[in-house]
């Protein structure tokens, strides 16, 4: 099993950064950094578009990050109905890294506000699937 284990429903089955899912299993949300020019990427990628190198190293996305924006979905696309309602969010970590994902359901709606401090952590889903979510830092 590779990338097809990622998220509630995955639309890709194989990539050169499948190791991302293994790292989630190990408790780490990781991006890649170019071993040649040092450029950091999230989502992780296998190829550096700055210097064309494919020598990538994994690094942990370290918190706390800052909530940029969010929205709570009341309707879901096919395959996600049972998760409703859920809140998608964009969170900034440090200067260069932004991560797209969902807020933990443990964060109450009235607590959510832009700029709140969040960290990112893996979450196991049913049927051997895995994802990550944002939690209060």
């Amino acid at each position: 099993m590779g990338f097809d284990r990622f998220g509630t429903v995955s639309f890709a089955n194989k990539s050169k950064v499948d190791h991302f899912v293994d790292l989630l299993d190990e408790g780490m949300v990781a991006g890649t950094r170019c071993g040649k020019c040092g450029e950091s990427f999230f989502p992780p990628r296998a190829d550096c578009c700055k210097c064309l190198s494919d020598e990538m190293e994994w690094f942990e996305v370290a918190g706390p990050g800052k909530l940029i924006s969010y929205s709570t979905l009341i309707y879901a696309p096919t395959g996600f109905e049972e998760d409703l309602p859920y809140t998608i969010a964009l969170v900034q970590f440090g200067e260069d890294i932004k991560v797209f994902g969902r807020l933990s359901k443990e964060i109450k709606a009235e607590e959510v506000r832009a700029d709140m401090k969040l960290e990112v952590a893996p979450v196991e889903l049913p049927n051997g699937r895995i994802t990550y979510e944002f939690r209060k830092a």
Partner: peptide, 15 residues
């Protein structure tokens, strides 16, 4: 992005 966004259950209105 079908690898990194769609697995969270995204739709145009959400974005």
């Amino acid at each position: 992005d079908i690898m990194w966004e769609s697995p969270f259950g995204t739709m145009m209105p959400g974005y």
